[in-house]
């Protein structure tokens, strides 16, 4: 009975629809992402890339269909267990979503604090992740004093610090110059190399061509084959 493909799928979407009121943002999405896969979601602006991500971290409920992530059925999940789902995920938001009143260090540390990690561990881990994104010197800065690219690197640091199984990255290199984009991308590749599953939403075709990984194309909310 054990289906090899089934066993290795960490994200499964069955006939997923998403409506915002009468606006159909996603129409009949079917998608399997296997463990340790590196997959792109592409499509023009407004195609529904961010919406698809939102469904995966329960930022929005699905209108129709089913989503399974690492054995959890998102339409059946109890409210209390939503944090558990989100701890499996490292999310890089398109608009970063850094807490403006907290320092860079505290923003990143928050993930580990919410997990109940020890302070010593948190300090070591956060410092090492900030070093990886090249922001260790700015640990005490507030987000609004950083450039867009710097904020994005903090968002990446926060996404990887909790050692999630899956990273959902919405335009992770969107506002970076080629050099820091390359650095962030290397960081994500490193995460993939350590066994993580990576889902990147982008309209950067160059990036996709370079890696040669699978890409899902969206157009006006539908999956299209290219």
């Amino acid at each position: 009975m054990i289906d090899k493909n089934d066993k290795s799928a960490i994200i499964r979407m069955f006939h997923v629809h998403k409506n915002y009121g009468s606006k159909k943002a996603l129409i009949n999405i079917n998608l399997d992402v296997s463990k340790n896969e590196f997959i792109f979601i592409t499509g023009p602006s407004g195609a529904g890339k961010s919406t698809l991500m939102k469904l995966l971290y329960l930022g929005e409920p699905v209108s129709e269909g089913q989503i399974l992530i690492d054995g959890m059925n998102l339409s059946r999940i109890a409210r209390k267990r939503i944090p558990l789902l989100r701890r499996k995920l490292g999310i890089i938001f398109q608009d970063y979503k850094l807490i403006p009143t907290k320092t860079v260090f505290d923003n990143v540390a928050l993930v580990l604090e919410a997990m109940g990690k020890k302070r010593r561990f948190i300090r070591k881990k956060v410092n090492s992740v900030l070093r990886m994104v090249g922001m260790e010197k700015r640990f005490n800065a507030l987000p609004q004093s950083l450039s867009g690219g710097e904020q994005q690197r903090i968002a990446v640091a926060r996404a990887v610090v909790g050692m999630p199984k899956i990273i959902l990255a919405d335009e992770p290199t969107g506002s970076l110059d080629p050099e820091s984009a390359g650095a962030v991308f290397d960081l994500l590749k490193g995460f993939h190399a350590r066994g993580g599953t990576l889902l990147i939403a982008t309209h950067d075709q160059e990036l996709i061509r370079k890696t040669g990984c699978r890409a899902i194309h969206l157009k006006e909310g539908r999956q299209v084959s290219k």
Binding site: Y57, G59, K80, I82, P83, L84, R86, R87, L89, I91, F93, K97, L98, I99, P100, T101, K102, L110, V111, E113, A114, M115, R158, G162
Partner: peptide, 16 residues
């Protein structure tokens, strides 16, 4: 509310 919403998105429990 924004801060609270972000905390929830990164996996903080209500209790936290």
């Amino acid at each position: 509310r924004e801060e609270i919403e972000i905390m929830r998105l990164v996996g903080a429990t209500d209790r936290f």
